[in-house]
Design a protein around this nucleic acid. Structure first.
Lengths: 208, 208
DNA sequence: CGGGTATCTGAATAGTGTTCAGATTATGGG
DNA sequence: CCCATAATCTGAACACTATTCAGATACCCG
């Protein structure tokens, strides 16, 4: 559908065009408004106005408002994967200790994202972006990073082979769920580090 | 604030009143519309119309649309706790086996609710109902049922004392997260039973 | 340079949340 | 029993929303 999908900081290409790269500009305006007002309460007209364009111009790039939001969600998944990759890059080494640090940091990055931008997190997981059930999703990359991290935990003897089987499922679900429960105010913020402790113990499979 | 908070099937009291118990009627109409169209896309006017009342009548019971949605969310949490209690009632006994069945059924009921009514689930956990962070929440009752179930698992020797400490946090987070990831189409539906398997293994703390 | 086309605008339609003055109805006190 | 009072609901209005479409605009290529 669209050629350039990654959010750019400003509109760079073709300064004196009709508007420049409008698709990106619209998405950037939209992400700011969602960040401030929540995924519901997003107004197409406000998006258009902030870009300095007529409301109807939006319909040249998105069939309707929901599609804009959905596309925005896809970009947020990509952005999240980038953050995960950066977080992993800060923790080098092949030791068991390094693998454990990476595991925790993956979860922490996930939660930090949710907690610092709850409205964007809600956009991603609140049914706003329609995800086709068969195809491959943008979240695939984050999933693969987690898988690799779990492989390291297994090969360094931190986790048991049995628990390795359930590693992605339990880790991702728990981190996702805790993030939701915390940003919605049901669990306190301190619960997340506690969850990571428990999760590590559980995955090690030796807690008496 | 409101005296009668529980959803009743139809308007029962005072048939020939102004309208009968309108607050309840509005909430019931709203829950049906949210179920069908999602928490975003809920129209106040549609709610009023389905009840057969003027749009402005709503403002005698709720200060604005968001408050109606928030109140609806509270009721859904209560309704969910009722389902959990019913599920537990179907599994009597003090054996370790019974406790394990109850544990699984608590999770299953949670997920079944999410999966059968994704839009209501999104309403509950999508930032629509404002939850005051200090006070006690409607989810407290479900939390206590889980705690009691974990106590039973501990006393019957199914789980370790160490993992008991993290029981509520890990279980609730994992079930919540898996429910979200599945209904949003990121994980397949079959993943939930697998999660329960892994969760039980992890909580037992003996998986090599 | 001029025709064609992608891009954007203006106006219009139908629907939204919200407010408020007033009409309607039930209820409690004489 | 009836009337004043208060609770309840309506109608119309306002500002705002998504969406459509005929037309104006500005770019690009031959």
């Amino acid at each position: 559908m669209s050629s350039s999908k990654v959010l750019r900081s400003k509109s760079v290409v073709r300064e004196s065009y009709h508007h420049g790269d409008l698709q990106a500009a619209l998405l950037e305006a939209a992400v700011n408004l969602v960040r401030a007002n929540g995924p519901d309460h997003l107004s197409l007209r406000a998006v258009a106005e902030q870009v300095g364009v007529s409301p109807s111009a939006v319909y040249h790039y998105f069939p309707d408002k929901d599609s804009l939001i959905s596309e925005l969600g896809d970009q947020l998944f990509i952005q999240m994967a980038v953050m995960q990759r950066e977080a992993l890059g800060n923790i080098p080494g092949n030791s068991a200790r390094a693998a454990r640090l990476r595991y925790r940091e993956l979860g922490r990055t996930y939660f930090r994202w949710a907690n610092s931008e709850p409205n964007l997190f809600r956009l991603m997981f609140g049914g706003f972006c329609k995800i086709e059930k068969g195809g491959t999703h943008e979240s695939e990359e984050a999933f693969l990073m987690l898988s690799k991290c779990l492989d390291e935990l297994l090969s360094t003897g931190v986790i048991t082979p049995t628990m390795r089987r359930y590693g992605e499922l339990i880790s991702w679900s728990a981190v996702q769920g805790a993030s939701t429960l915390i940003i919605e105010g049901i669990l306190p913020e301190a619960a997340f580090e506690e969850l990571l402790d428990g999760l590590e113990l559980a995955m090690r499979g030796g807690a008496k």
